[in-house]
Design a protein around this nucleic acid. Structure first.
Length: 424
RNA sequence: GCGGUCGUGGCGAAGUGGUUAACGCAUCGGUUUGUGGAUCCGACACUCGAGGGUUCAAUUCCCUUCGACCGCCCCA
């Protein structure tokens, strides 16, 4: 083998792509109901966009970006997530002029330079939505409900929604100070990871599996929320209740991206190995202004789901996925004259709406039948000199083994009608 | 970035420091001048991820490298 795909990168082959199509088709059906419209932004952007948008100190920016210089020495980065590019496109194309809420969705590959493991690839795929132009808590609730509905629509069971409010940047700074004050006295007793987390991302310390028992009396960010944040959060919860979306409040929920304000949430499900998050999102007021200029700032809220994680869980739960369309007709030509005729016939069959295939391996009758059987063909059409001279064609129905002769000039129309009849 | 396990034909999988690298599935051909899903017969790895080293001899020992899987960090 001369070439291998780059590490952590996928080939989706027939047999698997159908599953991806199902994930994407289901996503598109739901966006139509919710009135989100597709946006396709570049796979790569200027590095600065992600640094500013996602946050300089996040792990994504600090150590996971696929960054390179192009020929003009511009710093380019393969998108590690979808919100920054979408918000950039929104601002650059002046969609903020839209008097209504701008509702966008995207599906596509994202890139992060990481060690692959179960549910984590260097190229992975996300489906996400963004609603820009309103700070209504009703929109937060809609976005959360959307992701939940998507999982339901796919047939996923036991997806949990966790929500939290991370307030504003100032509130987080205050909370961070209080938290550090709480942690400082026990610093020496904490695990090594926790001590390093205290430096880099104190909010994450509370997630620690090892030291969990020490944090019973830890301060909660919910106690730090100001009046506006608290009201917003209460309203989001009220709307979720009204829509019947089940959720749990997790005051320790922290997201990996810096831009979240107010609402933050995650979708979780067991079954991907060490990982349980399949998606998440939140509100990001201020991000549009940061990317597109303060004068055009608009509030926004969005969510994204990791499709390979969704798929892993789908398969773990044994959810059935629609298969490749079955084969209606397999043509076998015996002898040169008949063989030439099958070329025309297979084409005509397709034009008549039949899924049709023929033998291209020059197989003999028996092998061709085997091949037809493997293809799970409903009918096999056999054309030899006998049939050709008589102006007929032999049609064998594989499931029953019954065989009949139909007029050569008419059998395609007849089979097409039979197919239509079965589907009616 | 760190750690663990692993890498033999299309797939699954045995194997040993030394003449022809088991077996199963799949595939192809035959048994049946033109008929599938069963049986039987036959064919199918100058080669054991790649590169280097040790050795009279390496798929089997050592090193390097690439990759896969799993975990840590973190996240989708």
């Amino acid at each position: 083998m001369n070439f291998q795909k780059p590490k952590g990168t996928p080939d989706f082959l027939p047999g698997t792509v159908e599953k991806w199509q199902y994930l994407e088709n289901t996503a598109r059906e739901l966006t139509a109901l919710y009135r989100y419209r597709e946006v396709r932004t570049p796979i790569f952007e200027h590095t600065e966009l992600f640094k500013r948008g996602v946050g300089e100190t996040t792990d994504v920016v600090e150590k996971e970006m696929y960054t390179f210089a192009d020929k003009a020495d511009r710093s380019i980065t393969l998108r590690p997530e979808g919100t920054a590019g979408t918000v950039r496109a929104y601002a650059e194309n002046k969609l903020y002029a839209d008097p209504d809420v701008t509702k966008l969705y995207y599906v596509g590959p994202m890139f992060r330079y990481e060690q692959p493991q179960a549910g984590r690839m260097r190229q992975f795929h996300q489906f996400g939505i963004e609603a820009l132009g309103s700070s209504s808590p009703a929109l937060d609730a809609e976005v959360i409900a959307f992701g939940y509905d998507y999982c339901r629509k796919l047939g996923l069971k036991d997806v949990r929604v966790e929500v939290n409010s991370v307030g504003t940047a100032e509130i987080r700074a205050n909370f961070r100070a209080k938290l550090l004050a709480f942690l400082e006295p026990m610093k020496e007793e904490l695990c090594r990871d926790c001590r390093s987390r205290m430096e880099r991302n104190p909010l994450r310390v509370l997630d620690c599996k090892i030291d969990q028992h020490r944090f019973d009396g830890a301060p909660s960010i919910l106690d730090e929320l100001d009046e506006e944040c608290r009201t917003h959060f209460e309203q989001v919860r009220g709307y979720l209740d009204a829509m019947g979306v089940p959720y749990e409040i997790n005051p320790r929920l922290v997201r990996g991206l810096d831009y979240y304000t107010h609402t933050a949430f995650e979708y979780k499900a067991a079954g991907i190995g060490a990982i349980d998050t399949i998606g998440g999102g939140g509100r990001y007021n201020g991000l549009v202004g940061q990317i597109g200029g303060e004068e055009h700032d608009q509030p926004g809220v969005g969510m994204a789901l990791g499709l390979e994680r969704v798929l892993i869980i789908l398969e773990a739960q044994g959810v059935s996925i629609p298969e490749y369309a079955p084969l209606d007709l397999y043509l076998i030509g015996l002898g040169d004259r008949a063989e030439a005729e099958t070329v025309r016939l297979v084409h005509a069959a397709r034009a008549a709406g039949l899924t049709a295939e023929k033998d291209y391996q020059g197989r003999k009758m028996k092998s061709a039948m085997k091949s037809a059987d493997r293809s799970a063909a409903r009918e096999v059409a056999i054309l030899g000199d006998d049939e050709l001279d008589a102006g007929v064609i032999s049609i064998k129905t594989m499931a029953t083994g019954e065989q009949r002769k139909l007029p050569l000039g008419d059998f395609i129309r007849m089979l097409a009608e039979e197919k239509a009849g079965r589907q009616a």
